[in-house]
């Protein structure tokens, strides 16, 4: 009984920790993105609220909470209300399997530094992240607006073109780590990160998670300049805020998955493991922001061309080559 209680308390504590850290990071990533983008475009970015604009996320939240929660007259009410939650919740759910440090010994028990250490963590990630597109699709469809619908149609077509390569780019990782557990995958990278062992898979995965996060150059469902706001055109106030924060939670989550699968997780010299993990995640997020400052948006036929004609063959070939090399080395 005490054992069960201990486990429950532990999981709740880890949930609270992750929830707090991820939301905090998401809020400040918005600020970081605006500041870095600003500096890259020779502007300052937000610097009025608090010292260096550090209170900007708070001001944004107050603004979003006090805005009118608008419901379009012909919208499908329940789907419209639920959709923003799907985006934010699926992004948070993925984080449940992400190990952010080595196992810890507490009261004589070995505890993984993740909410759960699933033995099918990779499959769980792929499954839950595919659900994230429902937020986009249902939100756009339920709004009963042509721009939103176009946005969600684009979201779907984008999903079918990158999701396959996303899964396939992880197959070499699983082959090399010989496990579906994220913890084992990190442990397999103790000496050399998979980025160096299999850069092709890493590159394909990077492009796919760029598409997964709906960010430039793959922000087709949003496409402000073409579709007003795409799938969230009709959303206002905190519902828009949920979509927005969901996007940045997703950024943190995808950054940590990139870290886990290819950058060696928490492994690194001198610094504590969790710090290394955080540094790597922030570096991936920084890369995403940098990419946003540099590249234009792709048309969606270009994205589908890229997904089906380039990334899919490349990742299939990569599986073949990785398999052959592993077989040749007798591993």
């Amino acid at each position: 009984m005490a054992d069960t209680l201990f486990t429950v308390v532990l999981i709740l504590a880890k949930l609270a920790l992750i929830f707090g850290v991820v939301l905090f990071m998401a809020a400040y990533l918005v600020l970081a993105e605006r500041k870095i983008l600003g500096r890259m475009q020779l502007r300052y970015g937000p610097n009025r609220v608090g010292p260096f604009g550090l209170m900007q996320p708070l001001a944004d939240v107050i603004k979003l909470l006090t805005k009118e929660d608008f419901l379009p007259a012909r919208a499908d009410k329940w789907l419209f209300l639920v959709a923003p939650g799907i985006t934010a919740v699926t992004a948070l759910l993925v984080f449940a399997v992400v190990p952010f440090g080595p196992t810890i010994e507490v009261f004589g028990r070995t505890i993984p530094a993740a909410v759960v250490d699933l033995n099918v963590g990779v499959l769980y990630f792929l499954g839950v992240s595919s659900m994230a597109v429902y937020g986009v699709v249902l939100g756009g469809w339920a709004s009963c607006s042509k721009y939103s619908l176009l946005g969600s149609v684009r979201g779907l077509s984008q999903m079918v073109s990158y999701e396959l390569s996303l899964g396939l780019s992880l197959v070499p990782v699983i082959m090399m780590a010989r496990s579906f557990s994220l913890h084992d995958i990190v442990m397999a990278q103790a000496s050399v990160p998979f980025l160096l062992l299999n850069p092709v898979a890493c590159f394909v995965f990077l492009i796919c998670i760029l598409a997964e996060s709906n960010r430039i150059p793959f922000d087709l469902p949003e496409a402000e300049n073409e579709l007003v706001g795409g799938f969230h055109t009709e959303y206002s106030g905190m519902r828009f805020g949920l979509f927005f924060v969901g996007e940045y939670i997703n950024l943190v989550v995808l950054g940590s998955l990139m870290t886990v699968f290819f950058l060696g997780g928490w492994h690194g010299p001198w610094l504590p493991p969790v710090v290394w993990f955080l540094i790597k995640v922030l570096m991936v997020c920084g890369l995403f922001i940098w990419i946003r400052a540099c590249l234009p948006r792709l048309r969606y036929d270009q994205l589908m061309n890229l997904g089906w004609k380039v990334l899919l063959p490349v990742s299939l070939l990569n599986i073949l080559v990785t398999g052959a090399v592993l077989l040749g080395l007798g591993l």
């Binding site: 600003g38 500096r39 890259m40 475009q41 020779l42 502007r43 300052y44 940098w290 400052a293 540099c294």
Partner: peptide
């Protein structure tokens, strides 16, 4: 963009 990051903003 990397070069711009270390320049003084024109604002």
């Amino acid at each position: 963009t990397l070069r711009n990051l270390f320049r003084k903003p024109v604002t």
